[in-house]
């Protein structure tokens, strides 16, 4: 039973550790850099920032 417990809790520790390392790595390698640019990826030349893209249909 103790062996199982060590395995489980050791595993949990290792996993959370590696998740943390992955997080740090993504910070270091630029995923978190230039957040402004990443936020702008959903806009294009013909749908630029400042242009609303939805409205109630108008009566014609």
């Amino acid at each position: 039973m103790t062996a199982e417990l060590i395995l489980i809790f050791g595993g949990m520790l290792a996993l959370s550790g590696s998740a943390f390392v992955a997080f740090c790595w993504s910070v270091c390698n630029g995923q978190m850099a230039r957040p402004r640019e990443a936020a702008l990826t959903i806009f294009d030349d013909d749908e630029p920032v400042g242009l609303p893209t939805d409205r109630f249909p108008s009566r014609k």
Partner: peptide, 16 residues
Amino acid sequence: LFVIGVLCTFAFSWLG
């Protein structure tokens, strides 16, 4: 890397 990160956080609760 992203996949590993995502799966690791999840495996954490899966073990627990």
